[in-house]
Amino acid sequence: MNFTLKIWRQKDAKSKGAFETYKVENISADTSFLEMLDILNNNLVHEGKEPVAFDHDCREGICGMCSLHIDGQAHGPSQGATTCQIYMRKFEDGATITIEPWRSAAFPVIKDLVVNRSAYDQILQAGGFISVRTNSVPDANAIPIPKADADESMDAAACIGCGACAATCKNGSAMLFVAARVSSLAKLPQGRVEAARRAKAMVAKMDELGFGNCTNTGACQAECPKSISIAHIARLNREFLSAKLED
């Protein structure tokens, strides 16, 4: 298969970027999207040009490192999959593919398609944990947890922190990310102890970092590679508002 690629190139955070057009040829349909970019980069190296910088690591859809806005969609054309899990058979032979970095004020571009997502780390540092010390904990089976609750907690915990939610949101809102963590812990008895404090602290940090406001479009859940439901956003709203009303 052959493709024309329109790729955003940007030297560094301060420089102005622009699209550049490349061609890749003889790509097997079984090649993954990132492998296709590897091939492009290898060609560029042979031509003595700088390869396109993009984030990636596990290539199994779990580390959350890969990003990319492909033809207008975060993580490309598949639902419930990361960019590394997209295969070229998803595209038509001869297609022109536009590849852009995440675009959100809170995710500044570092280079080409690489963005800085440390804002997500900062939100979690604000309260995305249960304050237990190593070794000062009860037996694992001391607290029974209804299976349904554990399952729901796991649904939310599946978040890989890739940033697709904020990147795809027309408001640049990180609500799905924040909600996934808050909701996952709020569903467990261990997490209830700090639930109110956590919800308030994480929302405050999210606001401080300049993420936008959720307007319930649901675009985040549509583009989330782990298909995390906006029901978790509802739970975050509930947790947050009830915490605030108690203040």
Partner: peptide, 23 residues
């Protein structure tokens, strides 16, 4: 090894559970 499971459960790791609520 047993301490690890205790630790992780306390941290909120959502391990698979049976209907009785145990691991």
């Amino acid at each position: 090894s047993n301490l690890i499971i205790d630790q992780c459960v306390a941290q909120g790791v959502p391990f698979a559970r049976e209907y009785g609520g145990l691991l």
